[in-house]
Design a protein around this nucleic acid. Structure first.
Length: 579
RNA sequence: GCGCCCGUAGCUCAGUUGGAUAGAGCAGGAGCCUUCUAAGCUUCAGGCCACAGGUUCGAAUCCUGUCGGGCGCGCCA
């Protein structure tokens, strides 16, 4: 239980008491009562808005109600003062010993500090990456991969049971194109001189696939009609592409629990089951769509199709699930796929590139329609859109050849700057904000670079331990933490916010909050360190004072632990030293 | 035409799910610094939170409208 949750309980108990005493009417809605750190530290350690939220329904004024609550808070042993302030806030100051206890808790819980039971084991399916299996991962996929993986990790830390899932689009025309492209390389491997025509995938990564196919099948499919080899080539090539993608993802430390096949969804009874359910609810019908607004495709014609009544759930238009020829649309399968995911999850999250923003409403409509219960309550489903990353080198856009298939691959970038830099940098912006990724800046050793700055703080802390050992100081197993002064304890207060940050990141599906918080922690630690430059008495390592050094080392270690825990969520290794 | 995202310091961005006097870094001004190994430290200045209404104890945050920027619109995937 986090410190804030603990005091929320205390306040709840006090409100119970006030009800029992008749000072408050029973049954007030307390959902908006919050316990938070005040923005201005001068206001104390914790603040609650309880009196302001409850005053109106209790038919009293906030300050009067606060005056009833505050003394009861002040009576608690962990609390030094509880004062009514402003419009009716109650500002609480904890005893120094409470904070020292929190520091001990961080050290004791170690890697477990920051974990919580918030999610209560609810099953969350996070689907991310889901790049088409037509080639290696490129940088366009990278950000979604990192954001999705970090979000999954944040949710795990907040007590959710997470499944990491990848949807493999192995059923559309793109994988047929892939198979034809592989066939071309297969002929090439058998000695033909080939030229990749417009519309096929030209990438070199298909060369070894073609060679493998040639080795396996010899020349039997060189002149055979497509119908004889397409399915086989498609399966083999998709499998090879998935191996490639898995290897690329592994470079980033990403491992999915499940790869769900679009073709398998289609072949299973899932589609029929989902459609039956919708039809039973009157949400599927045969109809003709109006011509799309804006640019109308050349081949558009008003024909009858099977449509999903997406407009009943907030979409702008009903959407086809089956084409006029009876084939499934992409959306039709996707709808069934989401039904499949919802079968064994309590919540769904999709991470999509922002270029798919236009289809968010229809899939949300579908999930609502498919998961709503008798009361109309649907399973929570969030589509997180991840904006594009602009690749720069020293401020100049990275030139990518116009020739299709020649892009900056994820593997190239990881090879150049390292997994940890890629992962951290991808989390230094909100997912829906556009981001620049500058090869020069992300590896810069300066305080402008948050990746470096956070790692540097951790390395300094590790270095302290090494140097303390070298100095032969006897470090106390249970240091006297009363030797820490107010500025030092301010670091503990910042560190104590970590569990709260993790919870907020989980609830809001915003893993970037961890990165920003770690930057704050690093900045605060560096500032404390720098105080030692001006005043040797404030250095962490005091060669002639083992007791103070022990206390400060415990403090430093707690900060190091927070950084490690935060980086672990982000999937970034903490640096032992800087090179 | 419609929809989605966005609009916060000169620039790049945070903003604790509606809290108190809106923050950080860069750039700019002024000092300092040769280190508990180090790639710096302190400090100043900078704001009509695009604009106008609304909701309430309280709005950068929620709602409506306007203006401005980006992206999207399909029987593709």
């Amino acid at each position: 239980m986090t410190l804030y949750a603990r005091f929320a309980d205390r306040i709840d108990a006090i409100l119970d008491t006030l009800e029992a005493e008749g000072a408050l009417p029973a049954g007030l809605d307390r959902r908006n009562v919050a316990v938070e750190p005040p923005r201005d530290p001068a206001h104390g350690d914790l603040a609650t808005n309880a009196a302001m939220v409850l005053a109106k329904p209790a038919k009293t004024n906030p300050r009067a109600l606060a005056a009833l609550i505050a003394p009861k808070l002040a009576d608690l042993p962990e609390i030094e003062t509880a004062e009514v302030a402003g419009p009716g806030f109650i500002n609480v100051r904890l005893t120094p010993e409470s904070w020292r206890d929190e520091l001990r808790t961080i050290l004791r819980d170690a890697g477990g500090y920051g974990r919580s039971a918030l999610g209560q084991g609810a099953r969350v399916n996070v689907e991310y990456v889901s790049a088409n299996p037509t080639g290696p991962m490129h940088m366009g996929h990278c950000r979604g991969a990192v954001v999705g993986d970090a979000l999954a990790s944040v949710l795990e830390h907040a007590g959710f049971a997470v499944t990491r899932e990848y949807y493999v689009n192995d059923a559309g025309s793109q994988v047929d194109t892939l198979a034809r492209s592989a066939h071309l390389r297969y002929r090439e491997a058998l000695g033909e001189t080939i030229e990749v025509p417009e519309g096929l995938y030209p990438g070199d990564y298909l060369v070894p696939i073609g060679a493998a196919l040639a080795a396996e099948y010899g020349d039997r499919y060189v002149t055979a009609p497509e119908a004889e080899w397409l399915v086989t080539f498609r399966e083999k090539t998709v499998a090879a592409m998935l191996d490639l993608i898995r290897a690329d993802l592994a470079l980033l430390g990403i491992h999915h629990d499940r790869f769900a096949s679009e073709a398998e969804v289609q072949a299973s009874g899932k589609v029929k089951a989902a459609f039956d359910r919708l039809r039973a609810d009157g949400l599927l019908y045969e109809g003709v769509l109006e011509a799309p607004k804006g640019e109308v495709p050349d081949d558009w014609a008003p024909v009858e199709m099977t449509l999903f009544r997406a407009t009943a759930f907030g979409d702008d238009s009903d959407r086809p699930v089956m084409k006029a020829d009876g084939g499934l649309t992409y959306f039709g399968t996707d709808l069934a796929y989401h039904a499949q995911k919802a079968d064994d999850a309590d919540q769904l999250i999709d991470i999509w590139g922002a270029d798919h923003a236009g289809t968010v409403k229809r899939i949300q409509a579908a999930v609502k329609a498919l998961t709503k219960d008798g009361n109309g309550a649907a399973k929570p489903f969030d589509v997180k859109l991840v904006q594009m990353v602009r690749l720069l080198r020293g401020g100049e856009p990275v030139k990518m050849s116009k020739r299709a298939g020649n892009f900056v691959t994820l593997a190239d970038v990881v090879r150049e700057v390292g997994k940890d830099v890629v992962r951290f940098t991808m989390l230094t912006r909100k997912a829906d904000a556009q981001m620049d990724f500058d090869f020069a800046k992300v590896v810069e050793a300066s305080k402008d670079n948050p990746v470096f700055y956070v790692q540097y703080a951790h390395a300094r802390i590790r270095s302290l331990h090494r140097r303390t050992a070298e100095a032969g100081l006897a470090i106390a197993a249970e240091p006297d933490l009363t030797l820490l002064d107010g500025e030092e304890m301010a670091l503990v207060k910042l560190a104590a916010q970590f569990p709260r940050i993790v919870e907020a990141a989980a609830v809001n599906h915003e893993p970037h909050r961890i990165a920003f918080y770690l930057s704050d922690v690093a900045a605060a630690f560096h500032a404390a360190w720098n105080r030692g430059n001006d005043d040797p008495a404030r250095r962490f390592l005091m060669a002639d004072d083992a007791a103070t050094t022990s206390a400060r080392l415990a403090l430093a270690e707690s900060i190091g632990q927070i950084i490690r825990n935060g980086l672990a969520i982000m999937g970034v290794a903490a640096a032992e030293e800087m090179n």
